[in-house]
């Protein structure tokens, strides 16, 4: 009896937690399909469905331009991250060289460094080098904040590839770079997926630097544009909820495909440190 009760309690808590996680998603999704006159009525199911908010979001707000800006910044961040992280983690986790642990430490410091302390000087420096209000400024900073964490995530993936594979390739005459291209990168696909998804997501969600480094409408990314849509005197909840849905959609789609690699990278890195 006692055991049964404990099990029932466990199931109830699990359910409550699931609702806690899922409800906010459900609620903005459902709300975004409600017509303008019923959206403020908290019905759990729309009385009549409409796509008007999505049409208006695309037609009259700057959603599409923000989407374009976000894609440019996120893809740029992702490509640069992938290249420099692969090279750096190959060096860190496959070579024994003087200063290795010093470099590792520099990288570690960067990813725990609170970025808010950099907003003022980064703004200053970007003004000086005339990169202010350019997507490039955002790409540069997003790489800075994503790359160190990606290197950390790669640790577990590199450890999982037996060094004997590298060595046997070396005996066959492959150079160190050939080992990277021909042996490591093909096996490292889950690790590459992890870098891709983390750098993309961290760029896609970045608000702080995006809110100060770019100012013209065409360069504003989705989080900044959404904040502007939401921050007007009368919040247009139709646009806001529809915009929120469309902003998280690409992330959820990407995560569905490569999320499990990302999770394994995250947990490997955390446990081994």
């Amino acid at each position: 009896m006692k055991k049964l009760l404990a099990k029932a309690l466990k199931i109830i808590i699990c359910l409550l937690l699931t609702i806690l996680i899922i409800f906010p998603f459900y609620w903005i999704l459902i709300s975004s399909f409600k017509s303008g006159d019923t959206i403020l009525v908290p019905d759990l199911w729309p009385v009549k469905w409409t796509l008007i908010h999505y049409k208006e979001l695309i037609g009259i707000t700057n959603y599409l331009s923000a989407l374009r800006a976000s894609i440019i910044v996120a893809v740029g961040t992702m490509i640069i991250c992938l290249i420099i992280v692969l090279l750096a983690s190959y060096a860190l986790y496959r070579f024994d060289f003087k200063g290795r642990s010093l470099f590792e430490r520099i990288i570690l410091i960067t990813y725990i460094f609170p970025s808010i302390l950099l907003v003022v000087p980064v703004y200053n420096v970007m003004v000086k080098v005339k990169l202010i209000d350019s997507p490039l400024a955002l790409i540069i900073m997003n790489v800075t904040f994503a790359a160190p964490f990606c290197v950390w995530l790669m640790r577990g993936f590199f450890k999982a590839i037996p060094i004997s594979l590298d060595e046997s390739a070396a005996i066959d005459g492959a150079g160190k770079m050939a080992v990277l291209y021909k042996i490591i990168i093909p096996i490292l696909k889950p690790g590459i997926a992890t870098i891709v998804i983390y750098s993309f997501i961290s760029s896609w969600t970045e608000y702080t630097f995006a809110s100060i480094l770019v100012s013209s409408e065409v360069n504003k990314t989705l989080p900044v544009a959404l904040h502007a849509i939401m921050g007007q005197y009368t919040v247009r909840w139709g646009h806001t909820t529809a915009g929120a849905v469309l902003t998280i959609l690409p992330i959820l789609v990407a995560f569905t495909f490569i999320g499990k690699y990302f999770i394994s990278g995250l947990t490997e890195g955390a446990v081994k440190e």
């Binding site: 060289f97 790489v143 800075t144 770079m177």
Partner: peptide, 25 residues
């Protein structure tokens, strides 16, 4: 020299985007 060349892009990137702003601040 290879490991240094491999790690250079990342380390330079971090120096340019973190250490220069830190000096500036």
């Amino acid at each position: 020299i290879l490991p240094y060349l491999l790690i250079a892009p990342l380390v330079l990137w971090l120096i340019l985007t973190i250490f220069i702003p830190v000096i500036n601040v």
